[in-house]
Structures are given as C-alpha cells and as structure tokens.
Simulated assay, not measured.
Amino acid sequence: MTGSDDTLAARLGGALALAVVAGATLLQAGRLRRALQAARGLVADTTAFTQRPHGPRQRVLLLGDSTGVGVGGGPAQSVAALLARDHPQLQLINACRSGARLPDVAQQVAAHAHELPHMDAVLVLAGGNDVLYTRRLPQLEQAADALMRVLAPVAPRVVWLGPANIGHAPVFVPPFSWWMSLRTRQAARIYARCARRAGATYLDFFRVGAADPFVADRQRWFARDGIHPSAASYRYCYDRLRRSAPFSRLLPAAGALKARVTAAG
C-alpha cells in the first residue's frame, strides 16, 4: 500500500468514525426528547407522600428529587410510602421536589425550618440530577459538603440514598451510556466521601456490569420514560434502607412493632 493509499484509508476511517458518532448523537437526542416528554407526564401525575399521625413515635424528614417523590413508581410505591406502611406511627415530612439538585435540597431544609428541631432522622434521595447537569466535579463536592453542613444540626441520623448507575438507564445508548456510567461512578465517590466526613451514612447503589441488579431486566426496573425507577426499583431501595444500621436502630422491624401492638391490645 502506498502513502497515498494510507492517507485515503485514514481519511475514510475518520469519516466513518464521524458518521458513527453523528448517528449515535442523533439517536441519543431523539431518545432523550421522547424520554423527557414521558417524564413530564409522570411528574405531573405524582405527588410527594407525607404521613402525619397523631402522637408520632419518630419523625423523619425526606429531602431530594423525583426519586424521593416516587416518580416512575407512583406515590403509593415510593420509599416514603413503603416506610409509612411498615411504620404507621412514623411522621414523614416529604420536602422532595422533581428536578432538584443538591443546592435545591439544601433549600428544602429552610422551607421546613419550623419543624426541624423535632426530627429524629433525615433521609436524602438526591444526586442524580447533579450527575446529569453539573459539568465540573469540584462543584459536586462543594454542593455535597454544603448540604451535609446544613443537615448536621437537623437530626442525629442522616442517611443518603445515592443514585444507581445512570448509564444503565434504557434511554442512554453508547457512547453516551459509557460517559454517564463514568460520571455516576465519580459522583458516587464524591458523595460517599462527603457523607463520611459529616458522619452521615451513604448507601451506594452504583454498580457496573452484571453486578448491577437494575441491568438484567430493564423493563422491570425502569419506568416507561426509560429514566426514572419503577415501583420494583423503589421496593429494592427501600429494602436496602430498611437493612441499614441507622434506620434499623431508629425504627423497629415492622413485624416486631405489629407484634407489640397486638400484644398490648
């Protein structure tokens, strides 16, 4: 092969690579557009679950984004609703709002300042939107540290449910799915580090490959928009939360609680 042939082959290879990238970009843009349209419908149909019983035994404040609201699974299948179902005497104040990033979560605390002195625990469901929309990693760490400082005086226990591998969401195609996986891995490490510095508990749901339970059956684990979790995913996350040390110490097992109530009656 002559030098001119090598040059031609290199140009053809470059043109092919550009065509592949351009095609993937168009495909990804179309999928995102349809997903966002579907997501808007899910958000409009979902409201944050709150429980305010008379004479509550414990009080928990929920902060975060659409995953705290339960978008994709419905409010009755959200983490908050599942927690309330097992603990009917638990007061749940749900300040979560769809689309919230970490700075927004810090502002959610201020909105409920009059109720904060009585909190036993804070449950944070946030961080995914920051992976999607925050460009620089140092900004993530600054926002996470700021949030932890805001939460420190609110309750003796803070549990943060971090995002799962966003790159595994059905809406993303390679190479964008690879990039989202890398971003989520980096963010999860930052979130865990910030939580550890503040003495909070970080539940890390990030996994890669076959180790990620959400990748085996995506129709089961993701809502119809291909972005938000499904009811099955919320149940999985709640079960993980229920087994975590801070909440197992704060809240008795549902079966034990029901047994004591039955015995007392």
Rank of each mutant, 00 (worst) to 15 (best):
residue 154 V to I: 04
residue 154 V to Q: 06
residue 154 V to T: 05
residue 155 A to S: 12
residue 155 A to E: 01
residue 156 P to G: 01
residue 157 R to W: 01
residue 157 R to M: 05
residue 158 V to N: 08
residue 161 L to A: 09
residue 162 G to Q: 10
residue 162 G to K: 01
residue 164 A to N: 06
residue 164 A to D: 11
residue 164 A to Q: 12
residue 165 N to Q: 02
residue 165 N to K: 03
residue 165 N to W: 04
residue 167 G to H: 03
residue 167 G to N: 07
residue 168 H to V: 09
residue 168 H to Y: 10
residue 170 P to T: 04
residue 171 V to S: 01
residue 171 V to N: 02
residue 172 F to T: 01
residue 173 V to R: 14
residue 173 V to I: 10
residue 173 V to F: 01
residue 174 P to G: 07
residue 175 P to Q: 08
residue 176 F to E: 05
residue 177 S to A: 15
residue 178 W to G: 04
residue 178 W to S: 07
residue 179 W to V: 14
residue 179 W to E: 11
residue 179 W to Q: 11
residue 179 W to K: 07
residue 180 M to C: 09
residue 180 M to L: 13
residue 183 R to D: 07
residue 183 R to K: 15
residue 184 T to N: 09
residue 184 T to A: 10
residue 185 R to W: 13
residue 185 R to A: 13
residue 186 Q to T: 07
residue 186 Q to Y: 00
residue 187 A to C: 05
residue 187 A to H: 10
residue 188 A to E: 08
residue 188 A to L: 00
residue 188 A to Q: 11
residue 189 R to D: 06
residue 190 I to F: 00
residue 190 I to N: 00
residue 191 Y to H: 13
residue 192 A to T: 02
residue 192 A to L: 04
residue 192 A to H: 08
residue 193 R to H: 15
residue 195 A to M: 07
residue 195 A to V: 06
residue 196 R to M: 06
residue 196 R to E: 14
residue 196 R to V: 03
residue 197 R to G: 00
residue 197 R to L: 04
residue 198 A to W: 08
residue 199 G to H: 09
residue 200 A to P: 00
residue 200 A to C: 09
residue 200 A to N: 06
residue 201 T to I: 02
residue 201 T to Y: 03
residue 201 T to L: 05
residue 203 L to G: 10
residue 203 L to V: 15
residue 204 D to K: 00
residue 204 D to H: 04
residue 204 D to V: 03
residue 204 D to N: 15
residue 205 F to Q: 07
residue 205 F to R: 02
residue 207 R to Y: 07
residue 207 R to W: 01
residue 208 V to R: 15
residue 209 G to I: 03
residue 211 A to P: 10
residue 211 A to I: 04
residue 211 A to T: 11
residue 212 D to T: 04
residue 213 P to H: 05
residue 215 V to M: 05
residue 217 D to A: 11
residue 217 D to N: 13
residue 217 D to E: 12
residue 219 Q to A: 15
residue 220 R to Y: 03
residue 221 W to R: 01
residue 221 W to E: 02
residue 221 W to Q: 06
residue 222 F to G: 06
residue 222 F to H: 03
residue 223 A to S: 14
residue 223 A to M: 05
residue 224 R to K: 13
residue 226 G to S: 01
residue 226 G to Y: 00
residue 227 I to R: 01
residue 227 I to V: 15
residue 228 H to I: 11
residue 228 H to F: 11
residue 228 H to T: 06
residue 229 P to M: 05
residue 230 S to D: 12
residue 231 A to T: 04
residue 231 A to F: 00
residue 233 S to D: 06
residue 233 S to T: 15
residue 233 S to E: 10
residue 236 Y to R: 12
residue 240 R to Q: 14
residue 240 R to P: 02
residue 240 R to N: 13
residue 241 L to M: 07
residue 241 L to R: 03
residue 241 L to F: 11
residue 241 L to G: 12
residue 241 L to S: 13
residue 244 S to L: 09
residue 244 S to V: 13
residue 244 S to C: 15
residue 244 S to T: 14
residue 245 A to L: 12
residue 247 F to M: 14
residue 248 S to W: 02
residue 248 S to I: 01
residue 249 R to D: 15
residue 251 L to A: 08
residue 253 A to K: 12
residue 253 A to T: 10
residue 253 A to C: 11
residue 254 A to I: 06
residue 254 A to Y: 09
residue 254 A to L: 08
residue 255 G to T: 14
residue 255 G to H: 12
residue 256 A to R: 14
residue 257 L to M: 14
residue 258 K to G: 06
residue 258 K to C: 10
residue 258 K to F: 11
residue 259 A to E: 14
residue 259 A to P: 09
residue 260 R to I: 05
residue 260 R to H: 11
residue 261 V to T: 13
residue 261 V to Y: 10
